[in-house]
C-alpha cells in the first residue's frame, strides 16, 4: 500500500479513555472484515488494559484503562497490530466461518405498517418486496444502538427508502425494518424511524437470559417469509403499534 493513498488507518481521540480507529469508509464488507480481525487482535494483545471494544462498520472503538496504558502507547500498539494484519493477508476469511442466522418473518401490513407505502415508493408489489428482502444474505455490520440491535446490510438498491420524517415513539419488539442500505430487527419495544415491513417472533434480546444476543458482528442473517399461522405458533404477537 503506497503512502499517497493511506488516509487509513486513521486514529482519532474519543475522550480521555478511548480512541477510535477507522480502517476505511462507508459500508464495505472487506473493511468490516478487517475491523473484526483487528478487534480480535487488539483483544488478545491488550485485553487486560481495555475495558470495552466496539466494532462498527468501518471503525473500532477502543476503551482503555488510563491507569495501565497511555494513549500514545495504545496508538503505537494498535498501529503495529494493523501492520501485522496487513502483512498476514488481512482478514483471514473471517466471514467464511461466521454463523448464519435465519429469521422467520411475517410480512403483512397488519404488523408492517410501512409495507404498502414501501411497495408504492419502490414500484414493487408487496410480494416483490418480500422476495427481494428474503432473497439474499445480509451481514451484521454492527451491534448497538440498543441491546441486541444488529445493523444488517446491504439492501438491494431497489429496496432503499429514506427514514421516516417523524420517528415513531413506540415500535413493537420483533419489528423488521428497512432504511436506506440497512435492515434490522428491533429487539425490544423502542422508538425508531425506520420503515417497518414485518415482524418476527424470535427473541433477539432477552434481559433475563444469560446470553445477551445470539448475533455478533461478522455473522450472516437471512430472512424467511412465514405465514400468519406459523408466526403465531412461534409465539408471535399481532399487537399493533400504539
Amino acid at each position: 500500500m503506497s503512502n499517497a493513498e493511506s488516509a487509513f488507518p486513521k486514529i482519532v481521540t474519543a475522550g480521555a479513555d478511548a480512541i477510535l480507529v477507522y480502517l476505511g469508509e462507508g459500508i464495505d464488507p472487506e473493511v468490516n472484515d478487517r475491523i473484526m480481525a483487528l478487534t480480535n487482535r487488539v483483544s488478545s494483545a491488550l485485553g487486560n488494559n481495555l475495558y470495552d471494544l466496539v466494532p462498527s462498520y468501518n471503525s473500532l472503538m477502543i476503551y482503555y484503562n488510563v491507569l495501565s496504558l497511555s494513549e500514545d502507547e495504545l496508538r503505537e500498539c494498535v498501529r503495529k497490530l494493523i501492520d501485522e494484519l496487513q502483512q498476514d493477508g488481512d482478514a483471514s476469511g473471517a466471514s467464511k466461518q461466521s454463523a448464519l442466522h435465519t429469521i422467520d418473518v411475517y410480512y403483512d401490513p397488519s404488523v408492517g405498517p410501512d409495507l404498502e407505502r414501501a411497495a408504492e415508493q419502490t414500484s414493487l408489489s408487496i410480494d416483490g418486496i418480500i422476495k427481494m428482502h428474503t432473497e439474499q444474505e445480509y451481514r451484521v455490520y454492527a451491534m448497538g444502538f440498543a441491546p441486541g440491535f444488529a445493523y444488517l446490510g446491504e439492501l438491494p438498491e431497489k429496496l432503499r427508502l429514506p427514514r421516516l420524517d417523524n420517528p415513531r415513539t413506540k415500535i413493537p419488539a420483533g419489528s423488521v425494518a428497512i432504511a436506506e442500505a440497512q435492515t434490522a430487527v428491533y429487539p425490544s419495544v423502542s422508538p425508531g424511524g425506520w420503515n417497518i415491513i414485518g415482524r418476527t417472533a424470535e427473541t433477539l434480546y432477552d434481559p433475563q437470559a444469560d446470553n445477551i444476543s445470539p448475533m455478533k458482528v461478522g455473522d450472516r442473517v437471512q430472512f424467511k417469509a412465514v405465514s400468519k399461522d406459523e408466526f403465531e405458533q412461534a409465539g408471535g404477537s399481532l399487537e399493533s403499534l400504539s
Binding site: N40, S44, A45, G47, N48, Y51, D52, L67
Partner: peptide, 16 residues
Amino acid sequence: YQFFNVRLPCQGGDNL
C-alpha cells in the same frame, strides 16, 4: 481514579 481507588473491570483477552 487513584484517589477514589477505582479499579476498572478489565476482562482479559477473551474478546472482552
